[in-house]
Design a protein around this nucleic acid. Structure first.
Length: 879
RNA sequence: GGACGCGUAGCUCAGUGGUAGAGCACUGUGUUGACAUCGCAGGGGUCGCAGGUUCAAUCCCUGCCGCGUCCACCA
């Protein structure tokens, strides 16, 4: 028996274990069309946050829905080694445990520590995905650093190198002085901070003067300390103010170096003095100037930790100072030399590392780069020509914008945790890239080789996720069957990091896009709309919510709130509401069971004669259609909305109430049997249709209602074959309308139980009279919720459809209120009637509007006119 | 500086070229054996502002105001 209390915790984990144990998530329909999703691999040592809950709920809905629809569904799952993030966690743990740090223990020992940590915490997030109900294909779980994946990464690196799409280069990179590694442009976030803008006078050398008579050039900078590395001052070639000094020199204060004044387009005459200091080794723009004017050279003044290092012209006293200390010292020294023109306070943009949170330094190093511009060409074309589409389509613009302006991708990282770069160096600096050291050695000949110390950007490997998970580079059946995938579901925030890179690598190595559709959802924010973050302390733990409300309620909430990729403001009261929805369905199933209703053996409904049964079959059909459309459109909110309305507003509120009299003692046995069958069928279909969103509850009830195979493997309703009965729908709509009318009068009157149907009616058609008789029990039951023993009294005037009902009532509690109600209804009817009359009197409308719209307006106008008349009459009778 | 999104009931959000919707909140009411995690009824909106197109605009167009996000080399 279904328990009185709905307690999701009592069955959720049991069902998950059952599904997994019985391989329910494995693709098992070799003859069916596959449906494939690859999971965005979570960090192996991470834990589930609310964004994961959203992302994976949506994927699970798609997977389960297509599985119910006969596809051979496969959700490819695994975890990411997450280079920087994981290395940082392990280093922090070592520090907390007061153990030797990374550098102290050495590379091999440190790597062992990370593997230890992976073993210890790696199961956390996969366990949490199971709690959520994600029906992933765990039997084939992958890791971005497992053996097969490593092989794929190495192969891709070597091939790109051989194709000259990957190369080593010395240029400025974004250097993280805390993590001491290069990072990519994307890993830098610009923040606005309070800073200063220092205007410095650089004296002209050799007695030169400007036309204005000045013996100096003013340059401005937000980072005065970089002047130690200046190698030129640039002015615009057509800037008349400086024409006479181009090619001459300034004496760089503090350093004693002479640096040239050069002409370069980079200097904007409109800005400041029109002259700009050039520090090639510490500024991206200035490096570009250097590349056009190689003669100026460059001087690096910072070490890997962004402290001042020994360099040409840098006074010994500066060496070892931090950036910040050096800034103060430079300003102080310039003050002493009277070289400061002025210092403004100014809001400036500063680059920060998204992981380390420290200021990023442009720094000159040798790194490995991928020629992203070349790979982007096909990736752009593939979206332009629709081989891959974004949903919502607005993200395509974002994708195009970035891809069209893509920069070389720095893929090397000075970390220890990750895929080590397969490059070896000879003592003379020659580089050999090969899949193994032996191959490299064969290329190099008889010299000692040392392997590149660096590892690859995490995203370099995750870019291969859609095919490396399938066994590539081997030509496995999985590759043929599951590439390309159908849908990628992810947050818009990693379109550049991940989606774009998968597109590039997928097209390059597989000659085909990695997925047909990219669905981008929004961010989950707190109830106030704030971004959730640990530092703000406004995060919500999905596991806590699951414990409190059940995984199904959380899933339903996220589904209902997912509207076309808009951000979600998560409010706990909403989860509570959907938990109540689950309770409602639970109780409806319990009612069914108590009334001898069980799951229906057939996917098709029984042949029904009763209007109410025919009606609910039609309602199920309509809902199923709406759900199919919702999936086709990726409208998760529409999916939730349609099934919610069917369950609560149709099935529970009306169907179950309307069939109660049909199941009562003494009712017609055939009718009761038909009704039990239909109710059982309808409930089955509800469970099937709701299953993708609420898998646990539906599976539990499915089994409670009968001994059957698991719901997860059931078949979606055969929408096209379901009957629909317009006459039955009209009957029930009429009945619902009538009961609602009586109910809205209920607060004013009591209908005594002695009042028997049919009520007296005026103006009723034979059809209405027949409907009234047929539905008498339901009307009596539902329209008389407040009935009590009351003396016979007057009559309630009720206008419904073409008839006026005279319902015997007991004590009239408030006749004036009843009159007010009628008055209001009359006013509304008149208002609508007049509005429709106005429209129909407008030639523009009758001539130009769609014929259906005009016809409907005519019908509505007639109905409203008649209603107004009857309401007026009823009001008059009431006195 | 570019690009995009949003502004509809107290809150969170759907929606449509032709009578404005949902959930929650609120008010009133109800202990009929599925469900008080519930039932029933009710109040509440000049659809940001101003123009334009149209017979008709919350919806399409333009401008403005407000909020948010992403990208970008203002030294």
């Amino acid at each position: 028996m279904i328990d009185r209390i709905f307690d999701p915790a009592s069955f959720e984990q049991r069902w998950y274990a059952h599904w997994e144990r019985n391989a329910r998530f494995r693709p098992a329909r070799p003859d069916a069309q596959p449906f494939t999703i690859v999971i965005p691999p979570p960090n192996v040592t991470g834990s589930l946050h609310i964004g994961h809950a959203l992302d994976n709920t949506l994927q699970d809905i798609l997977i389960r829905w297509h599985r119910l629809n006969g596809r051979d569904a496969r959700w490819i799952v695994g975890t990411d080694h997450a280079g920087i993030a994981t290395q940082m966690v392990v280093e922090r743990r070592l520090a907390e445990a007061q153990q030797p740090g990374r550098t102290a223990m050495g590379r091999a020992a440190f790597e062992a520590k990370v593997w230890e940590w992976k073993a210890e915490s790696g199961g956390t997030i996969t366990g949490q995905l199971r709690r959520l109900g994600a029906s992933c294909d765990w039997a084939n779980e992958r890791f971005t650093m497992d053996d097969g994946f490593n092989a794929a990464v190495i192969k891709v690196f070597v091939e790109l190198y051989n194709q000259k799409l990957l190369y080593r280069d010395k240029r400025l990179v974004n250097w993280d002085p805390k993590l001491k590694t290069a990072i990519s442009d994307l890993e830098v976030e610009t923040r606005e901070v309070a800073g200063t803008f220092t205007h410095i006078r650089y004296p002209l050398a050799d007695g030169a003067v400007l036309d204005s008579g000045a013996d100096h050039i003013i340059v401005a900078t937000t980072r005065p300390e970089t002047m130690l590395g200046d190698t030129a001052v640039a002015v615009h070639p057509e800037d008349a103010r400086y024409a006479s000094v181009i090619g001459k020199f300034v004496e760089l204060p503090i350093t004693g170096r002479r640096i040239p004044i050069i002409a370069d387009e980079h200097a904007d005459p409109e800005l400041g003095s029109g002259a700009v200091k050039i520090t090639p080794a510490h500024d991206f723009n200035d490096w570009a100037v250097y590349e056009r004017n190689k003669a100026i050279g460059w001087i690096n003044i910072l070490d890997a930790e962004a402290n001042i290092c020994v360099a040409d012209g840098v006074p010994a006293a500066y060496v070892g100072l931090t950036r910040e200390a050096a800034r103060k010292q430079v300003v102080a020294d310039l003050e002493a030399l009277d070289r400061i023109e002025r210092i403004e306070n100014k809001t400036i943009q500063m680059p920060y590392g998204d992981r380390s949170g420290v200021v990023i330094e442009p720094w000159l190093t040798d790194q490995w780069y991928v020629n992203a511009g070349e790979l982007a060409k096909d990736a752009l074309a593939a979206v332009h020509d629709g081989r891959t589409r974004f949903v919502p389509a607005t993200w395509e613009k974002t994708y195009f914008n970035w891809m069209e302006n893509i920069q070389p991708w720095c893929v090397s990282r000075q970390l220890w945790w990750g895929h080590r770069i397969p490059a070896w160096y000879a003592p003379d600096g020659r580089v050999f890239v090969a899949e193994t050291q032996a191959e490299a050695q064969a290329q190099a000949g008889d010299v000692a080789l040392t392997r590149d110390e660096d590892v690859l950007d995490t995203w370099f490997s995750s870019a291969l996720w859609p095919f490396a998970t399938l066994g590539w580079p081997a030509e496995t059946p999985d590759v043929a069957r599951h590439y390309p995938g159908d849908v990628l579901v992810t947050g818009f925030d990693i379109i550049f990091f991940w989606v774009a890179r998968m597109m590039m690598q997928g097209l390059h190595f597989m000659d085909e896009v990695p997925f047909r559709t990219v669905y981008c959802h929004g961010l989950v924010r707190d109830a106030k709309g704030q971004k959730m973050s640990k530092s703000k302390g406004n995060t919500v733990d999905p596991l806590v919510l699951i414990d409190k409300y059940g995984a199904d309620a959380l899933r339903f909430t996220l589904t209902a709130m997912e509207t076309q990729g808009r951000d979600i403001k998560l409010n706990e009261s909403r989860i509570e509401g959907y938990r109540n929805f689950a309770t409602k369905l639970w109780n409806a199933a319990r009612f069914a069971q108590m009334n001898g209703i069980a799951g229906h053996p057939d996917i098709m409904p029984p042949a029904a004669t009763q209007p109410v049964n025919r009606w609910i079959i039609g309602e199920v059909k309509q809902t199923a259609r709406a759900l199919e459309q919702a999936i086709a459109d990726f409208r998760f909110d529409a999916y939730a909305d349609a099934i919610y309305k069917l369950v609560w507003s149709r099935f529970c509120d009306w169907y179950l109430e309307l069939i109660k009299p049909l199941l009562a003692e003494g009712a017609d046995a055939d009718v009761a049997a038909e009704t039990r069958s239909t109710a059982g069928w309808a409930l089955d279909q509800i469970l099937v249709m709701l299953h993708p969103v609420m898998p646990f509850l539906t599976e539990e009830l499915w089994h409670q209602l009968g001994t059957r195979d698991d719901l997860i493997l059931a078949q979606w309703v055969a929408t096209a074959a379901l009957p629909e009965d317009a006459a039955a729908s009209a009957d029930i709509d009429w009945l619902i309308g009538l009961i609602s009318e009586i109910r809205s009068a209920r607060t004013e009157v009591n209908v005594p139980p002695s009042a028997k149907l049919p009520f007296a009616v005026e103006g009723a058609s034979p059809e209405t009279t027949a409907r009234l008789a047929a539905n008498a029990p339901a009307i009596e039951r539902l329209a008389r919720v407040t009935a009590g023993a009351a003396p016979e009294g007057g009559r309630l005037q009720l206008v419904h459809g073409e008839a006026t009902f005279l319902i015997p009532i007991g004590d009239v509690i408030d006749l004036a209120a009843e009159k007010a109600r009628l008055d209001k209804a009359l006013a509304a009817a008149i208002k609508e009637r007049d509005a429709l009359a106005g429209r129909l009197g407008n030639p523009g409308f009758t001539e130009k509007a769609k014929p259906e719209a005009v016809e409907k307006a005519r019908e509505d106008h007639e109905a409203r006119s008649a209603e107004a008349e009857r309401l007026a009459a009823a009001l008059a009778r009431l006195g």
